[in-house]
Design a binder for these strands. Structure first.
Lengths: 152, 152
DNA sequence: TTTTTTACATAGACATGCTATGCAAAATCG
DNA sequence: CGATTTTGCATAGCATGTCTATGTAAAAAA
């Protein structure tokens, strides 16, 4: 198979598809390059779990796995790591002997606060280089991306 | 350390910071939930490397690492995996005996095409549920996220 | 020509993700 | 009510993805 033969491109009727692919690419690249917080060891899933626990209170492992779209064993091992950091605690669920309730600790809240501070420090200078209209566009896009994530 | 003591929140002057954190969170979650293509084994970095090779032609390992904001050994091992898939080839750089030029193969182009098709199939139905104005907002946000990634 | 720098590979560590499977508790069924 | 099925989580085992530290060979500089 030669490297020089052209590969057919998509037709002009698929503008929405190209927008879709472009959006995923841009969001992934943005997450990769801008969204990395210096010194942060854990993935964005970890921080979103902590944020969800802060917002919604204690939750089961399987609930967290479903929310974050990861397999249950993946969430089990993440929770174990967060437990080792003392950022969450595991409590028995009084209404179900099989389940465990994952609870955010104060140390977890503080770690989340530090993470958010570091993320803001990193990104605000970039956003500040944009005009007000573009900043507004990105704010609205945040809502839309959240909405699409929920739709999924 | 109790779990119930409140953690102080940020002041009202930091609206831009909250927007910044929200944007990162939304982009990361969108990438995690919507951007996952069923059956895709490799990370989004892998697909972006292939896309960059397609757009810009052969590149060195260290160039690719810098572009994707990963360490050089990370890119080395990724290129080895892509080479095992026959999606890229390594060619000696005629002008530098140390360097290796990474070249996209036709199989790599086809794999990229399949990936884009699968991604579009996954995301277009979601985008189609939005109004034209929101679709336009997301298209502009794609450009802005790319711009911010480049600024970084 | 010798030294330093550069480009890439290797080693080793750990996080993140998956599937398959095990175990114990809850729920269901006969 | 006892037996079976389902459910919630843990464990095992594997591959990817990421890092830092270090090695090697070629190029560049001294």
């Amino acid at each position: 198979m030669s490297r020089t033969d052209p590969v057919p491109t998509t037709g002009p009727e698929e503008a929405l598809g190209q927008h879709a692919v472009e959006l995923v690419r841009a969001a992934a690249r943005f997450t990769q390059t801008v969204g990395r917080v210096p010194g942060a060891v854990y993935s964005s899933v970890a921080w979103r779990v902590l944020a969800d626990l802060e917002t919604d209170g204690p939750a089961r492992v399987s609930e967290l796995a479903a929310e974050q779209r990861v397999a249950q064993p993946t969430m089990t091992s993440l929770i174990h790591r967060l437990e080792a950091e003392a950022w969450v605690e595991r409590q028995p669920d009084p209404s179900d002997g099989r389940a465990a309730l994952v609870v955010l600790t104060r140390a977890g809240s503080l770690a989340l606060l530090d993470y958010r501070r570091a993320a803001a420090e990193r990104i605000v200078p970039l956003l500040a280089q944009l005009g007000a209209a573009d900043q507004e566009t990105l704010a609205r896009a945040s809502e839309l991306m959240q909405l699409l994530s929920d739709l999924d």
